[in-house]
Nucleic acid binder design. Structure first.
Lengths: 343, 343
DNA sequence: CTGTTAGCGCGTTCAA
DNA sequence: TTGAACGCGCTAACAG
């Protein structure tokens, strides 16, 4: 049996009204101290717990926020979600997880189901910015549900974003490779329809130009974030008439594949070839040949996104705020790009 | 503006009753086909979306399940949650995440808040089996909320579990080390109050005894799952009068630390010393010196836990089922324990 | 086939 | 200070 104890049960036992019980439990000033204590006491005795669903229906606030990510089993997204959860939990919010697997169909569907579930906010890492999502996003905005993009964003009025400066990150990595004496730097990019990859690439380009290097489109290869794709890319690059001597990969996994392939060809890293990755996945620092990578501070990013949500909720009565937070990436220089003579 | 469209709005527009609208929308047989179509049509036009909170309050089912894990930003738990989400989502359930950070206080608190949020089930990886949680768990069972432990379990009547056979895993690893010619095998264990670690240790012990090895308690060191702890443990072990020539670690991170420390001492792996880990973390296969480890199939484990929940919900009217699913672990033999002459 | 009524559990008017 | 009544949005029982 469900053991459901409601305010009516405790009202009956005390020969008072549910309304009075409600007031007592909610520290309503208009109530006699003695009855308040009595109510609280017997409520505890009867093991009463408020039904959040009823509260939610009444107030229109579910105290749930939806988080939409491509997948949850990666260090990056796992960490962002952790950050979100840790900030929101003390405020009484629960985090509902949705995965999209990069399918825009699922992405839109997820937003809809979250909205129907009456979430108080949606934090998401949008997958493909090319697909038109204005319709569904308008539905969110019209419902006045705070929407926050983190990491993978799209510029939309009324939508706050929390990202890192991917341009700066791309620039820093490339500049570092140049400083190490690399002459022909290739770039393994992700899907350029996403701003994060576009920006990393732009930073790469700018660093080249700023340092008198030639920008060669053939040195850019688009890959998915998989080890195998890194191996493939290297095979392609080495077949060029003028092969590169360094790679800036927008993914740690691709960087790893690249390193594996280079090693199998007997190419020495970092002496003959430097490789840098992106995301600071745990394995990059665990390897014997540790991999230079960019820390995106996913935990911080998640916390920040959650804080922006909280602000948005607090000020929901006032003007609609739209906050753009940009975190500064940190380059971790490791063995895969660190040449002895520069140390 | 909230743009809230309810069945009353569409009833008003059609000059019918909300009840009729409800029936039409729910494929109730007792309704004229024409009005059904009309209702569905105008509902679509008005962009009506059912309010799940109202549904939940009415039905007593929230269509949310709570998942409680120590942390979410590890490959293992991330993968289990992914599995859970992927099985439950098609059934209309949402997954609510809670982290405990191994604090039993938070663990109990999480259960309570999930219960108050009226979740339809709780899937959890329990942290410390020594702490008495009977009271809170009884509350769950009394409310008839399906409770399922995965990975870290505790034997409680009425609670289903999904685990791997940790005894078998410990046995397999140890046997493998013996087969590789290791003579003195140490074991780095986790908190023995958890069944998973106790069982891995028991498997280790049994394999030793079955093969005529001596079981020496001094060869067992309890550690937390951190790289640094592996280094410390090795330092201790090497100081023994009769130091071991192999380590079976119950954690990949600890195994990694052990390997780092051994290497720094100039000890050759696997020729002079073999090290095996546990959990098959991604980095174990990425390393140049790849690490032998045990696959716990976290994705499968999550999926299985979700399926058990679904069964439990389906049969909730009937006898209370209590299902114990035990997955078979898989040993991935890699360089850290593979001696040439045995290949 | 459809309308009326009631209730899920709670907070909040308006009276008293 | 407390009680009575209402409504959040929806479904289900009972009429008609």
């Amino acid at each position: 049996m469900g053991e459901k104890v409601t305010i009516y049960d405790i009202a009956k036992k005390l020969n008072i009204t549910a309304a009075t019980v409600s007031r007592a439990l909610n520290n309503n000033p208009k109530i006699k101290a003695s009855t308040r204590e009595l109510v609280i006491e017997t409520a505890a005795k009867m093991n009463y717990k408020p039904n959040k669903l009823a509260l939610a229906l009444k107030s229109g606030k579910s105290n749930n926020v939806g988080v939409i990510v491509p997948r949850i089993d990666s260090n990056f997204f796992g960490s962002t979600i952790r950050g979100i959860e840790e900030v929101l939990y003390p405020h009484g919010y629960h985090v509902i997880i949705c995965q999209t697997h990069e399918e825009e169909k699922l992405e839109i569907e997820n937003i809809n189901t979250l909205l129907n579930a009456q979430v108080d906010g949606i934090l998401m890492s949008i997958s493909n910015a090319e697909i038109d999502k204005d319709h569904i996003i308008n539905r969110v905005l019209k419902k006045n549900v705070p929407l926050i993009f983190f990491d993978r964003k799209k510029n939309i009025d009324g939508v706050s974003t929390v990202t890192i400066n991917d341009f700066e990150a791309g620039y820093k990595v490339t500049k570092h490779l140049i400083d190490q004496g690399c002459k022909r730097i290739a770039h393994l990019s992700g899907d350029k329809s996403m701003e994060i990859y576009k920006d990393r690439c732009l930073g790469y380009k700018q660093a080249l130009l700023d340092n008198g290097f030639e920008f060669d489109k053939n040195y850019i290869i688009q890959t998915k974030s998989k080890v195998e794709e890194g191996r493939k890319a290297v095979k392609k690059l080495l077949k060029m008439k003028n092969p590169p001597d360094a790679i800036f990969s927008a993914s740690d996994f691709v960087a790893l594949g690249a390193i594996q392939e280079l090693k199998s060809k007997g190419i020495k890293i970092p002496e003959e070839f430097c490789v840098a990755g992106f995301s600071n996945e745990p394995f990059t620092r665990f390897m014997e040949l540790s991999i230079t990578s960019v820390d995106q501070f996913p935990l911080e990013m998640g916390k920040m996104a959650a804080k922006v949500f909280l602000e948005q909720v607090k000020d929901s009565g006032k003007v609609k705020i739209e906050k753009k937070v940009v975190l500064t990436p940190k380059l971790h220089i490791r063995k895969s790009t660190l040449r002895k003579n520069n140390a």
